[in-house]
Design a protein around this nucleic acid. Structure first.
Lengths: 203, 203
DNA sequence: ATGCTACTGGATAGATCGTTCTAGCGATAG
DNA sequence: CTATCGCTAGAACGATCTATCCAGTAGCAT
């Protein structure tokens, strides 16, 4: 037994984590199919044995785990902006502004940790498709809840959350493709105005 | 010489077109890296010789051509909704409604012909990245122009065009991942309201 | 008819793919 | 001391990848 954490071996320095981090970055930047297991091992400094020890299901299990991990990271990011008690209009504005800065500063390589893999595998791997759907839903729930907390009708809150999600995801696609932040800035302004309007129309 | 069309051989029944159609569908559904040239040839019924005859640059040149072709098809689709003289509010509403129907009827396999490949190759192939950027820009230009024709300030028209683009692309991602049309419907309503508002605020 | 060009057909090469397998290391428990 | 267990290490495998190569066919022009 011995137990530490959630079943993860934390003894050496976290080989499992290193593999997960490396695959997350490579999947996010190059996609799932284009990323070879060998590249992941090279980037993480782990041998084959370790990968199949921690992820007996092979590349697909690693894909699911990487989506879960990326989803959790982004969920915490959303929480950090749209945490309980946050000024939602200001949070929206800052979220998009900061997203633009991050994407630009990373040379337009990193944006959504999941989108590329989600589109690639939506039709070919149910486990990965479902993992991506869970991650997206968890982000939406945060926005939805905050809007409802602020007094917005649940159905409207859901719709606005979806609008913000689609805005940033579409903008990430445009940004990575054109190597500009034009779209992120444009939809950021629109999203901010939208949130302001939906909050402003309350009793 | 002989000449016909834009340098394409149209003699037999269009082997080049069949290759292009097959790769377009496979790239759109599975992505670029996960689609082998063998699968493309099998789907199109063409031999290796033909592929490298028509696309000497190999898979990457085929990728660029498929993006160009997919971009053109979608450009015509946008034109068919947002053609000169169209009712922009109605066109927006119908565009999203019809998009939801198509995606659902195709089992959530087909959505944007370019998005998956664009995300995959944005960081690894400049020719493909640029092709995708050209395609996106050509769609945006149509929307932009119609809005300007309707009297919208150019900068606002650009922003609204980007908003619509990001809305549909983000919704396609959500739809393919969740196998629902929830997002397309939500952003469709928001987009329609947005276009109505921006047109309604004119002199 | 003959030569020319466009295209077809597929075998083959060389690299890389994901996975499996066995051997062994190092720390901890008995 | 010895057994056990978690993990490391990488060789090896069959499959599949993209690309090359060349022989063969069909249609057109002269």
């Amino acid at each position: 037994m011995e137990s530490n954490g959630a079943g993860r071996a934390s003894r050496p320095a976290g080989t499992r984590e290193r593999i997960l981090d490396a695959s997350g970055e490579l999947f996010r930047r190059r996609g799932y199919a284009a990323t070879g297991v060998k590249a992941i091992l090279a980037a993480s400094g782990a041998p084959y044995g370790s990968l199949y020890h921690f992820f007996p299901g092979g590349k697909e299990e690693l894909g699911v785990a990487a989506i879960d991990a990326g989803g959790a990271v982004y969920r915490e990011l959303v929480e950090s902006y749209f945490g309980s008690g946050a000024d939602l209009v200001d949070a929206t504005r800052r979220f998009f502004e900061d997203a633009a800065a991050v994407v630009r500063d990373h040379g337009y390589a990193d944006a959504c940790p999941i989108a590329t893999v989600a589109l690639e595998t939506a039709g070919s791997s149910e486990p990965m498709r479902e993992a991506a759907a869970r991650a997206f839903e968890s982000w939406l729930r945060i926005l939805e809840r905050r809007l409802v907390d602020a007094g917005v009708e649940p159905a409207v809150a859901r719709a606005v959350a979806l609008e913000l999600f689609c805005a940033i995801e579409g903008a990430f696609l445009h940004s990575r493709t054109t190597r500009t932040t034009e779209a992120i800035e444009a939809v950021g302004r629109a999203a901010t105005a939208r949130v302001r309007a939906v909050l402003g129309s309350l009793g």
